[in-house]
């Protein structure tokens, strides 16, 4: 246990709250235990049951992100809000950058653009670092589109490959990546991206990677200038992925289609599915050009403390908590 890292962690959390409070963001405390968690194909909620005294039992899960409830509150008429609390994801590796329980910060703004949330992120990190007397982050951070990153680091022109699985498969083979029959376009994208591009992003300077192919949009709006891309952003610092943000989709019909697609992917992967959160869907029309971002606080603490592993900024590692052999 590293007490000095725990002290630093406590300060980081206080300064994050101070940053948002001073700008009149409302701190909301959304439920950790819900009936219908996010249904992203590659995130696994922890499931349990809520039992009433009369024995009536309801399926319940720990949230993988507070996103749904945050957006319902936005839709109910709050313009700026943040949520800071633990989130839970099963099936994540015990690899020094993940823990099944981690501290997540999410914040949202109405009537805003993706660049506003990037500005917030940059200013918040600079604010916290300055309060701690840490000068390691130079602002402004670099802003790079996914398309440009492919050009710069892999010398591949990504735009003509969009939605063309065959062309993407040829690129993978030419670069010694395997191509499995059931690999989707996204899977092939990641084989190149994770091998040749991601390891180089954020190394010299914190970098926002933005404008993702629309198949990776999830809850993001498609870009208004070019609908082949979605208004989504990820922040990389050193080798860590720190944050993932969207211009929030507010089209109920489109969201329903994407949820059904995600459900289908879960079924193909042999995973369980559950009903779509209808309250979330009907709240979407109340979103006024909202943008939001999810931010990994443990990872920021790692960067600020120089800790090599997430385990050093937690009171006890996942191994220690769950693995009998330790």
């Amino acid at each position: 246990m590293n007490v000095s890292h725990l002290r630093l962690r406590s300060q980081v959390v206080k300064y994050i709250r101070q940053f948002f409070d001073e700008q009149d963001f409302l701190e909301v405390h959304t439920p950790r235990l819900v009936g219908k968690p996010g249904q992203e194909p590659y995130l696994e909620p922890f499931w349990t049951k809520v039992i009433e005294p009369n024995g009536k039992s309801h399926p319940a899960a720990l949230i993988t992100s507070p996103e749904y409830m945050c957006k319902r509150i936005l839709s109910a008429g709050v313009d700026k809000l943040y949520d800071l609390g633990p989130c839970f994801r099963n099936n994540e590796p015990f690899d020094g950058t993940h823990d099944p329980e981690f501290l997540m910060l999410e914040w949202y703004r109405s009537e805003a653009k993706l660049t506003d949330i990037m500005d917030d992120t940059e200013r918040m990190i600079a604010f916290v670092a300055k309060k701690l007397g840490n000068s390691r982050f130079n602002t402004p951070f670099r802003r790079l589109t996914v398309e440009q990153a492919w050009k710069d680091y892999a010398e591949i022109d990504l735009a003509p490959l969009l939605e063309d699985r065959q062309a993407m498969a040829r690129i993978c083979l030419a670069r010694n990546q395997s191509v499995a029959l059931d690999d989707s376009w996204d899977d092939l994208f990641f084989k190149i991206f994770l091998s040749e591009i991601e390891p180089k992003i954020g190394r010299e300077q914190p970098t926002f990677l933005c404008r993702y192919p629309k198949s990776m949009a999830s809850l993001a709006r498609l870009s208004s200038e070019d609908t082949r891309w979605a208004d989504r952003v990820e922040l990389y610092i050193d080798e860590l992925e720190i944050a993932n943000g969207f211009a929030e989709l507010s089209d109920e019909t489109e969201q329903r289609i994407r949820f059904e697609e995600e459900k289908k992917i879960r079924k193909t992967l042999g995973k369980n599915t559950w009903p779509i959160d209808e309250r979330y869907l009907s709240a979407l029309s109340g979103l006024k050009k909202a943008v939001g971002i999810a931010f990994g606080v443990d990872r920021l603490v790692m960067l600020l403390s120089g800790a090599a592993s997430i385990n050093e900024v937690l009171p006890a590692s996942a191994r220690e908590r769950f693995d009998e052999r330790f």
């Binding site: 590659y42 590796p93 996204d186 390891p199 993932n244």
Partner: peptide, 14 residues
């Protein structure tokens, strides 16, 4: 080798 889960993507080993 390293296990990687890109945001919104499947799990991979790099």
């Amino acid at each position: 080798f390293q296990h990687v889960n890109p945001g919104k993507g499947a799990a991979f080993v790099r």
